[in-house]
Simulated scan of single mutants.
Amino acid sequence: MRIWVARPEPGAARTGRRLSALGHTPVVAPVLTIRPTGAALPAAAFAGLLLTSANAVAALTAADRVRFEHVPAFAVGARTAALARRAGLRAVAEAGGDAAHLVVLVRATLPAGSSLLHVAGVDGKAEPTASLRTAGYPISSVVAYAAVAESVLPTAIATALGAYPGSLEAVLHYSRRSAETAYGLACRAELGGAFGALKHYCLSGDVAAPLVAAGLDVHFVAERPDEETLLAGLATGT
């Protein structure tokens, strides 16, 4: 299949390579760009670090990485955990891919009352911080990165959708924001119908929600919010 990869870099290029290895033709055309905000992390001492995105690791400065080298870091998934270890953090625990498991992991590791720092994005979700605060963990959140939306549909995608059917068959959605943005840009370009006719593969039910709300047919929703499960949907022809 010829598949649009709409997620931001650096993940988009990596996903494109994986699709090529599986025999598909990727069209890597992100609709979001991740940029650090430059916000400094607070100087207070923390018992744990919450990393709910690989972008959080990328936003850490060299000084931050030295400072938190031995502080327990709780990563939402395998990719984030791997990047955290590569960045020099030594006490990294992986939550398995979702916020609920991250809450369980923190509670099993640190006692209530432990102060936590969440390195967050502009469009961060309420979890896991809401549940952890309810469980008695003081949390400081710093908006360290932002996903900036493209103003127009990428040229390669506009051309492909304009020539639909035949030139583009599917799209991978990795976040709710990218799915919303991709659909909005397609509609603005008067290509919403062609966009809706694609096979939509979504990383989770939350990612699929805006597409479902818009009345689009979502072809596949991964049972686990990780790339392995998402790409397995392609491999099985689901």
Score class of each variant (00 low, 15 high):
A63E: 10
H219I: 15
V57G: 07
Y174W: 15
G233M: 14
E190L: 14
A44G: 13
L132H: 06
P138R: 01
A149T: 04
A197T: 11
A29M: 00
A82M: 01
S20G: 09
V71Q: 09
A13M: 12
H24R: 10
A147C: 06
L153M: 06
D206A: 13
L51V: 02
W4E: 07
S178L: 06
A40Y: 04
V148Y: 03
S53R: 00
P30Q: 00
A13G: 09
L89Q: 03
T181R: 12
G38V: 07
A182L: 12
A208V: 06
A54V: 14
A39G: 12
A44Q: 14
L89T: 00
L198T: 06
L216S: 09
G166T: 11
P225K: 05
G88M: 08
L49W: 01
H219P: 10
G237H: 04
S204Q: 10
T155W: 10
L50K: 03
A186F: 15
G96K: 03
P8L: 01
S167M: 11
Y164A: 06
S178Y: 08
T181H: 02
V31P: 08
L153W: 12
A144Q: 01
A158D: 06
V119F: 02
E227S: 06
A126C: 08
T33V: 04
T229E: 13
H101E: 03
L83Q: 13
S151G: 13
K199W: 11
L41H: 05
A235R: 15
D206V: 13
C187E: 05
R67F: 03
A144Y: 02
A59F: 00
